[in-house]
Simulated scan of single mutants.
Amino acid sequence: MPVFPASSPSSPSSFTPSGAPWRPAATAAVVARLRAAGCVFAEDEARLLISAAPTPDRLTALVDRRAGGLPLEHVLGWAEFCGLRVTVDRGVFVPRPRTAFLVHRAAACGPPAGPGRPAPVVVDLCCGSGAVGAALTEALGRVELHAADIEPAAVRCARRNLAPAGGRVHEGDLYEPLPARLRGRVDLLVANAPYVPTGAIALLPPEARDHEPLLALDGGADGLQIQRRVAAGAAHWLAPGGRLLIESGEHQAPDTAGVFAAAGLIPRVDRSEELDATVVTGTRPHRAPVP
């Protein structure tokens, strides 16, 4: 469905490199199309789509994809996260605004790098696009960053996002692909592991359940299946005093804290009402033996 009719003076035939003849006129038409498709933030999305389109034909193609249900971030090819523009390929989990709280909590826990200090070792498990690792590197400065994901598409995407920071991205299941030399050396271990209960997947917005990998959403029967696996292995990889931080649902957080305690970590729950986000932190005691 064209955004402009063929007879319009703002049709592709009148396109100029500056975009001045058609961009202002496009706004109302794009907003109307997006509203009709059920996009809640139609005005904001229209502005982004128009700015991304070099020609009216390209704008029509972008609007068609968005109106067809493709997540805006997949249409644009990027997401804004913690002030960064993060590449997000189709089929890759889209970083959520609430996950900024995970970054904020991890940055508050992280030992800063400085003269005479080694760079903190940071591991981003279930990394998806690598957004958390990229934002945490930006917040902490110099770090030794490793990330891992089981999805090949996510690994390819994360490698592009983390390469500027010198991050290394490994493909495999949780800790399995990490270099053995990291055992007992990780200062910060962050994991935006899936925590949606299997029975609730059908209740997610179509953008998520139809266009993001199920492995990035499904947390098992109670939503804690992957969290248990992450917590069970954490003490083997964390340095003494190192921390594991996981995003959790508000009502799941007490159970997540119990999972951490059972794995020998000292749990803490933090909540941001502003971002509607909950993070559970588990600290490896300095003197406790690794199980």
Rank of each mutant, 00 (worst) to 15 (best):
R243D: 05
E176T: 12
D210V: 08
D187S: 09
F260N: 05
T256M: 15
L244E: 10
E247R: 07
E171T: 06
N192P: 01
I226H: 08
G233F: 01
W237H: 03
Y195L: 12
R228H: 07
G220E: 09
G223D: 08
L214Y: 10
A231S: 06
A193M: 07
P164K: 00
G223A: 11
A239H: 12
G184V: 09
R209C: 10
F260K: 03
N192A: 11
L224S: 08
G241Q: 03
G199S: 10
E207Q: 15
V259Q: 07
P205I: 11
E207G: 09
P240S: 10
P197H: 10
A193F: 05
E250K: 10
L204V: 09
A231I: 01
P254F: 14
A232V: 04
G249P: 06
E250M: 12
R181I: 03
P206T: 05
Y195C: 03
L214E: 12
W237D: 02
A231Y: 00
H251A: 15
G249I: 13
V190R: 01
R209F: 10
S248I: 07
T256V: 15
Q252C: 11
A221K: 09
P206R: 12
L203S: 15
V259N: 09
E250Y: 13
L214K: 13
D218W: 05
A165C: 14
G167F: 08
A232K: 11
A253S: 15
R185L: 08
L224C: 06
A261Y: 05
A231K: 01
W237A: 04
A191V: 07
L214I: 13
L245V: 04
Y195S: 02
E212K: 02
V230D: 00
H211V: 13
W237M: 05
V230L: 07
D222Q: 07
D222F: 03
F260R: 00
L215N: 04
G233Q: 08
A193P: 04
N161D: 11
G241T: 06
G219K: 04
A239K: 14
Y195I: 11
A239E: 09
A235Y: 00
R168F: 07
I201C: 02
R209K: 13
A261I: 07
R243F: 07
L174D: 01
E207V: 06
L203F: 08
G172S: 00
G167H: 01
